[in-house]
Amino acid sequence: MRLPPARGAAESELPTRVVETGHGPLEFRLDRRGPETVVIFHGGHMRAGLALGEEPFTQAGCSLLVPSRPGYGRTPVTTGGSAEGFADATAALCARLGVTRVTAVVGVSGGGPTAVAMTARHPVLVERLILQSAVGPVPWPDRRTYLGAHVVFAPRTEPATWALVHALVRHAPDAALRMLLRDLTVLPVGKVVAGLQSEHRDAAIALFTRMRSGHGFLNDLHDFNGGPDLRCLSADVEQPSLVIASRHDGAVPFAHAQALAAALRRAELLESLADSHFVWFGDDWPAIAARIRGFLRP
């Protein structure tokens, strides 16, 4: 089944493919590097053609398999039908690609529930679980986020919302960063923006100029209930798990990481000192990245 290119795709995006999995069409990026494979489920407003925080895995020589979750990029919102269903679709994709062993499944932010589901439902395939600023078995989102998202990311308004964001980022990057990071931190946003290292500032600007929500973010809000389903799935995970989060995260509160660490059977909670949801921009990220590489090869 051939699908049109993702709307608003940037020319500098990484190349992706779409295949039929038996659970529906699925867009993915496969970066073959070594015999070990890491599957990465990125969070909201992200798709397979965008990369964030992937360096620890590439530095470890791992191949990367990065799917676009339902509603993002060229993956229809119907593929898989839920976090659990999309986990099964991704396992089917692994089989199609000849990936018989996944060294780690990584769940970032809104990709966390799918990562937990894949690890729990496919224990023969998946060896480890890594969660970064991930949504856990705690009610999410708050009412303000839920209602606001249904205004700015509704199908009729989402293209205009991101067109305005992209224009603001290009023409007034400092103002854009203050606006966009405000909901990602519990600290004064001016302090957070002023404290960004130049490479992190450039990375944030580049990312925000390419983000889109499609139907994915609203699907996330409907799919995540923070209730017993995710808690039960977490309890079913027997593989070693590494949970990484910051107490300064304004998008996914630290309580999610604590709940995940409590529910997962063999979890280590690693607290980031980052000023925001973006743990990759924290001063301690090099040390955390080294811990991730060690976790991949204990």
Rank of each mutant, 00 (worst) to 15 (best):
T103D: 05
L184C: 14
G81M: 14
L164H: 03
P76A: 06
T103H: 07
V108T: 13
G61N: 10
G110K: 00
S133A: 15
R144N: 04
V169M: 13
A175Y: 00
P113S: 13
T145M: 14
L177P: 04
G85Y: 11
A95E: 14
G53Y: 00
V126H: 03
P70Q: 09
R121H: 09
L180F: 03
L184P: 00
L129D: 04
V165E: 00
P139L: 06
L184G: 12
R144K: 10
L52N: 05
L93G: 10
G111E: 08
P159K: 02
W140K: 11
F86R: 00
V135I: 15
P56L: 00
R178M: 10
A60I: 09
G110D: 03
F57G: 11
S133H: 00
L93N: 13
L65G: 10
F86S: 01
A160M: 01
A87I: 02
A160N: 00
W162M: 04
P188D: 13
V105A: 15
L147W: 13
A154N: 14
E158L: 02
V116D: 03
P76Q: 06
G136E: 11
G148I: 01
H150N: 04
A163W: 06
H171L: 15
H122R: 15
D88H: 15
V138M: 08
S109M: 04
L184W: 07
T90L: 02
D88S: 15
T119G: 09
A154M: 09
F86I: 11
P123N: 12
P76I: 08
R69W: 07
G53F: 01
V106K: 05
A117C: 13
A149V: 04
L52M: 12
V105M: 11
T79S: 05
R96C: 05
P139W: 10
T157I: 12
P173S: 06
V135W: 09
V66P: 08
Q197S: 13
A92L: 10
P56Q: 00
V186M: 01
T100V: 08
V77E: 14
S198P: 07
A83S: 14
A194Q: 11
V169R: 02
V108P: 01
A83C: 13
F57K: 05
G107V: 08
T58I: 14
L168I: 03
L187A: 10
A115N: 01
L131R: 01
S63H: 05
S133P: 04
R121Q: 15
V151R: 03
Q197T: 12
G190E: 11
T157C: 02
R144M: 11
G195L: 04
A89I: 03
M179E: 05
H166M: 05
Q197F: 02
W162G: 01
R101P: 08
L147K: 02
G148L: 12
P137Y: 06
T79V: 02
H166V: 08
P123R: 09
T58C: 08
A91N: 07
R182G: 02
T119M: 02
W162Q: 08
R144Q: 13
P56F: 02
G112T: 06
L147C: 06
V193Q: 05
G73K: 01
R128L: 07
R101H: 15
Y146G: 03
V77I: 13
G112I: 01
R96Y: 03
A104D: 05
V152P: 01
A154T: 09
S82G: 11
P155G: 07
V189D: 06
G73W: 12
V186I: 14
S63K: 06
Y72E: 08
F86E: 07
